[in-house]
Amino acid sequence: MTDTIRSLTAEKIEQARADGRTAFIGYLPAGYPTIEDSIEAAVQLGNNGADIIEIGLPYSDPVMDGEVIQLATAEALENGFRVADVFHIVKEVTSRTDAAVVIMTYWNLVDRMGVDEFSRRFAEAGGAGLVTPDLVPEEASEWFEASDKYELDRIFLTAPSSPDERVKLTVDSSRGFVYAVSVMGITGARGEVSNAAERVVRRAHEAGAPRVCVGLGISEPQHVAEIGSYADGAIVGTALVAALRDNGPQAVGEITRNLVTGASKK
């Protein structure tokens, strides 16, 4: 990890640790169901206990997403969402919550705008970093450059299938935290968190990652508590998106309050 540059997500995770909590990271798609409601939902998320908010950029070909998120992002696109709208969303959410805001994006959207241009506008809006599900460090040279220039966190993913040398590569390339994929599969709430998760986190820690957060399949407070016993943060997506879909932005606040009860280690 490169720690000479200030990392907003690292600060949030360390703050949670100091408070005796597992960091809580919530995902919501930008522009779903509308731009305004997506801002409202993210504010609910941030003001009810999320340390980091992950805003997903709707993309036409989201290969790592399960049905709930696919349908939500497809709806956002049908409603006319444009990539540049995300900067407005990030600006609103950072000004109305204390959470660090990262964007989760498939790489072509950044590539098309231009990596430098995207990074500049995102940093200006107050953004903290990017989660990049289809970008591996080998293809990220432009992103390394831009993320250093604009002091953004690089959150790469590590998976149960990653061999040791790739875990090391991911850890060395990341800043802020490493995103541990808990299961071989796509996003979606699951009954229990895969028992592979603990091993993925341990390997990333052993490779030198100071902060490792777990995503995929987390939907209950006890999942958060369980993950907190070995990881630095828990990432929830589908459960929040389903709540937003069914009951609107207020429901995101409610489910977040419930989920973060699992985050307390006191």
Partner: peptide, 14 residues
């Protein structure tokens, strides 16, 4: 070209 892929599949591609 290249490998713009999820990390989960990198081992399989290898």
């Amino acid at each position: 070209g290249g490998q713009w892929m999820p990390e989960s599949l990198m081992a399989a591609l290898q």
